[in-house]
Design a protein around this nucleic acid. Sequence first.
DNA 1: CCCCTAATTTACAATCATTCGCAATAAAAC
DNA 2: GTTTTATTGCGAATGATTGTAAATTAGGGG
Lengths: 182, 182
Amino acid sequence: MLRTEGLGMQLYDTADLRAELHQIGCRLTPQREKILKFFQNLPQGNHLSAEDVYQALRQRGENISLSTIYRSLKLMARMGLLRELELAEGHKHYELNQPYPHHHHHLVCVQCNRTIEFTNTSILKTGIKQAEKEGLHLLDCQLTIHAICPEALRRGWPSLLPSNWVCPRALNGTVTGVITQN
Amino acid sequence: MLRTEGLGMQLYDTADLRAELHQIGCRLTPQREKILKFFQNLPQGNHLSAEDVYQALRQRGENISLSTIYRSLKLMARMGLLRELELAEGHKHYELNQPYPHHHHHLVCVQCNRTIEFTNTSILKTGIKQAEKEGLHLLDCQLTIHAICPEALRRGWPSLLPSNWVCPRALNGTVTGVITQN
DNA sequence: CCCCTAATTTACAATCATTCGCAATAAAAC
DNA sequence: GTTTTATTGCGAATGATTGTAAATTAGGGG
């Protein structure tokens, strides 16, 4: 249903989501629908934790329990609707799992946690090919590059950084959101 | 020192490790040396948690505290000596970060946690290029493919699996260790 | 070779993201 | 509508990981 090569989706409306859920014996609940909609309306480059989603929905007057958020995020990640990201912050982050034209990867500075998104179609192709070769159904495919910025290196690293020092790269705009083409 | 394109290493002896540590203001301790040696003598395909390392060293009569294991693993991952893997088990796993000929990636079934390793040189090239482009020093670069095996899909998924059911693919040999060439 | 200082280890406590158990609720099949 | 069974919500529990403070040790300088 609207999938591109088995990975991610373009747009899921209520009926699509219900169908997808029913297919695996699950039900469509208002909570699940709201959570997915929330991600679908989020600007590119947002990586949210369960707590983030909880707070954001709460501010919109939607009182969905934190447990339900956790359960829904995990479920949707396993369905391939969301991507579970393991960047550098010590807890999982989620984003919409988008198909080809928007499918992207992450470059993270382990010192300042700045995250740069970039696209690369050959990686996706590799993922699809590899899953197919093993006879598995692809859910997600992400290249994560861990790196360290030169500013942090120069200051002495990893233990010599004064605890109040902030990596200069972290100050250039937001932590996430930059997209570069390959 | 023995690096290949700035990623990973072939062999680190005591002097190399000391030099690398000193360069960033850290000291070579017997604990750190033993932990790295331990990983260097491990067969390909092992992904160990901090607890695993703790137990393994303890069995060899090396009593290194769990805290030290945690700190050393993190330090060495940040140095690019080890890779921190976020597969599907809910805790981090580590393996030696090896350069080009042995550098590899992971395909994981989110249902049975079976992990398949595969190599692909173009991905490493992409990682190197991308880090360079952003002016960052590359530490690691890993493609993680999340997928689900057809056996689990057929049984109804994700909630219909009886709790005592084991995905058949999980029974084909060990959970980790298979290497396929691209 | 010994001293000194800062880095490190250790044991233990603390944290904090995530999960669990269970009663209450509500999809959706009939 | 009734029934079945997935799901929610709450609070408690879990468990990986990190913090703390005292004791130890690496390694540079005399």
